[in-house]
Design a binder for these strands. Structure first.
Length: 293
RNA sequence: GCCUCGUUAGCUCAGUUGGUAGAGCAAGGGAUUGAAAAUCCCUGUGUCCUUGGUUCGAUUCCGAGACGAGGCA
């Protein structure tokens, strides 16, 4: 019985502004590698300044995949990411190069490289809208009660206030005609991954880097970028759920000042970095590198 | 100089008819299975400005002082 050998790959992870792009490029140069970005926002075209996409200079001739490939109006989810990344890994390995995954987005990384085995059920816009309407008129509990009927096991694990997760669980359970808790599972990791994590032991230091980077984004014209996107696409959910754009939305409506926008972007980015770290800390295979000093 | 109001958690402020106090934000921790830069959960001891007095007991009442804001001269 011969077991197929798993592909070796490197994963460089860390919170926003930790410098993982640079490290990934260094490693790619050293090991003849190509980079696959695991970032739910850099995937989009035109989302440049806000997502701190690497410039051509910063890419330093290294091939970067899954950056700048989706239109802002297109949907892109974990499943799309996983499928594309898996293909890319096969392709890169077949050319005798080393795949290096660099990111950011905890759910993407865990699904591609760790143990999440996601149910294959596409989003159902109408159902979501319907359930959200019920939540608005009758309260979230009404929707939660529906989930308790469909999948009491999962309902126990999802907090009754977490509408997004409740809705998805109902969506999956209804589509498959079986409880989502039975459709989802854990799997063996598909690859032989060397995990490298970037972090600052001193949280203040990380937060300072974030604050500085936001100031740089403003200097580079983040306001104009946000303006263009809102004018071109309107109030897309995607824009309203992306740090760096969502805050400008209120500013363009005259609700808050420029100073407040900048402060909010910094604040939201700090919160985001903290949430990212919660994802990564759960992964005991990560070898951590200190970024300060 | 006089009058009024204020001084409580890192910040903004509630509150205690006298029995040592609580919200929002911040901060920290966690969850996370096709929206994930999304969504959600948990965590609040702080000379209640200082100092005298009244009281069994004062952050709460009274006096004095300090600081801040406004008003009158």
């Amino acid at each position: 019985m011969t077991k197929k050998e798993k592909h070796k790959i490197i994963a460089v992870v860390g919170p926003t502004a930790s410098g993982k792009s640079r490290l990934a490029v260094e490693l790619a140069k050293k090991h003849n590698g190509e980079i696959i970005s695991a970032d739910s926002r850099q995937i989009y075209k035109e989302f440049d300044i806000a997502t701190a996409k690497p410039s051509e200079d910063e890419k330093a001739g290294i091939v970067h995949h899954l950056i700048d490939i989706i239109e802002p109006t297109q949907e892109f989810t974990v499943a799309d990411f996983t499928d594309r990344a898996q293909q890319l890994i096969e392709d890169i390995v077949s050319r005798n190069k080393l795949p290096i995954i660099a990111g950011g987005t905890g759910l993407y990384l865990r699904t591609l490289l760790q143990d999440f085995d996601i149910p294959r059920v596409e989003p159902n816009k109408e159902l979501r809208k319907e359930l959200e309407t019920i939540a608005e008129s009758e309260g979230v509990e009404a929707v939660y009660d529906m989930l308790v009927e469909l999948d009491p096991v999962l309902a126990q694990k999802i907090h009754k206030n977490n509408l997004v997760k409740i809705v998805r669980a109902i969506e999956v359970s209804k589509t498959l005609n079986m409880p989502m808790s039975q459709a989802q599972g854990r799997k063996e990791p598909m690859y032989d991954v060397e995990w490298i994590g970037l972090n600052a032991e001193n949280r203040e230091y990380l937060y300072n880097r974030i604050n500085l980077r936001v100031d740089e984004m403003i200097e580079k014209g983040l306001e104009q970028e946000a303006k263009n996107l809102f004018e071109k696409y309107g109030e897309l959910t995607l824009l309203l759920s992306t740090i760096g754009y969502q805050e400008f939305h209120e500013y363009f409506k005259g609700l808050i000042s420029k100073e407040e926008v900048i402060e909010q972007i910094k604040q939201n980015t700090r919160h985001y970095a903290k949430r990212q770290l919660t994802w990564f800390r759960q992964n005991k295979d990560i070898k951590w590198m200190e970024i300060e000093g």
